[in-house]
Computed example of a mutant assay.
Amino acid sequence: MQRREPRPNWPRRRHINRNASVSIAARPAEAVPDPAPQSNRSPHVTGIVANQILRDGRICRRVLAGRDGGPRPGDRFQGSPARGIEPPAHRNAPATLPTPRQLPPDTTDFTGRAAVLQHLREVRDPVLTIADAPGVGKTALMVHAAHLLRRRFPDGQLFAELHGTRDRPRNPDEVLGHFLLALGVAEHSLPRRTGERVDRYRTLLADRRVLVVLDDAANERPVRPLVPSGARCACLVTSRSRLAALEGARRLDLPELDGVDSLRLPDPPGLRPSPA
């Protein structure tokens, strides 16, 4: 009678191989230890064990790749994910742009200029300039009007002092960088060239309702790059110059206060802005 070799305990061997599948799958084939000693193995046993190792390795790789019991795109993560792993639900979520609030504090005891304030609250021109001699309260009036207009521009208010009457006026490139940072652009992502900053700035404001306030402009040159192009944005500018060459701007001239609020408009309300 032919003597049969005892059948190995396959469930136990399968359990051992499955628990070791992670380490086996991660090691090269030549580094996997032989499951049976050289003297005791047979071709039948060796083939079965080799197939089991290969199968467990494939299962391990499928689990690690998320194709068999592992996390799939769109799965909800419970608890805090591991460091360096971003939940798939957040990976493609649109970034929320910040809402800048850069207006200086409003003057609580502001009085006078009732006619001017009423006109500023009703005007719909994209660019409005207030120009006159120093000491007539242009900045205080503009800041107060900007606070009154905040509800019309819920996406934010940007403010910059251009220092046009000082020895060293601010460069438009610097102001653009200041605005882009306030709009959520990372410092390392700021464009280097002025033209690229203008494009990025106007792109961010294209579909938003933002009020831009520019104080103390020397002339039209530093103002032009800072004027938003969005149809729902507005820009308020103060200057000692009338800024007659600023395209699409409506100009208000303020005389010195003489006890009676007064307003002189270069063109009557309702007419188109005066050409450049």
Rank of each mutant, 00 (worst) to 15 (best):
199 D>K: 10
41 R>E: 08
105 P>F: 10
28 P>N: 11
167 D>T: 14
249 A>Y: 03
53 I>D: 03
55 R>T: 12
239 S>D: 02
270 G>E: 06
144 H>N: 07
193 R>K: 09
195 G>R: 07
63 V>I: 12
213 V>I: 08
52 Q>Y: 11
269 P>I: 10
154 P>E: 09
190 L>I: 14
276 A>W: 08
12 R>M: 12
129 T>E: 03
91 R>Y: 15
38 Q>M: 11
2 Q>K: 10
30 E>A: 15
169 P>Q: 08
262 S>L: 08
239 S>R: 00
225 P>N: 08
161 E>T: 13
129 T>C: 11
185 V>I: 14
152 R>K: 11
99 T>K: 04
115 A>T: 15
208 R>L: 15
100 P>K: 04
42 S>M: 06
30 E>F: 15
263 L>G: 01
105 P>I: 06
211 L>S: 02
218 A>S: 10
112 G>M: 00
58 R>A: 10
159 F>S: 03
145 A>Q: 01
254 L>R: 01
141 L>I: 05
88 P>L: 15
227 V>W: 04
185 V>H: 01
52 Q>L: 14
116 V>C: 03
212 V>A: 03
8 P>Q: 04
257 L>G: 07
222 P>R: 02
269 P>V: 13
46 T>V: 11
146 A>E: 01
269 P>F: 12
221 R>L: 14
273 P>N: 12
199 D>F: 14
160 A>K: 00
69 G>R: 03
263 L>F: 04
91 R>P: 02
42 S>N: 05
154 P>R: 09
106 D>A: 12
208 R>P: 04
51 N>D: 13
4 R>G: 06
230 G>E: 07
61 R>Q: 07
113 R>N: 02
123 V>Q: 00
98 P>Q: 09
7 R>M: 13
102 Q>F: 12
79 G>C: 09
134 P>M: 08
210 V>N: 01
185 V>A: 03
74 G>Q: 04
64 L>E: 06
35 P>M: 05
66 G>L: 07
256 E>M: 13
193 R>D: 09
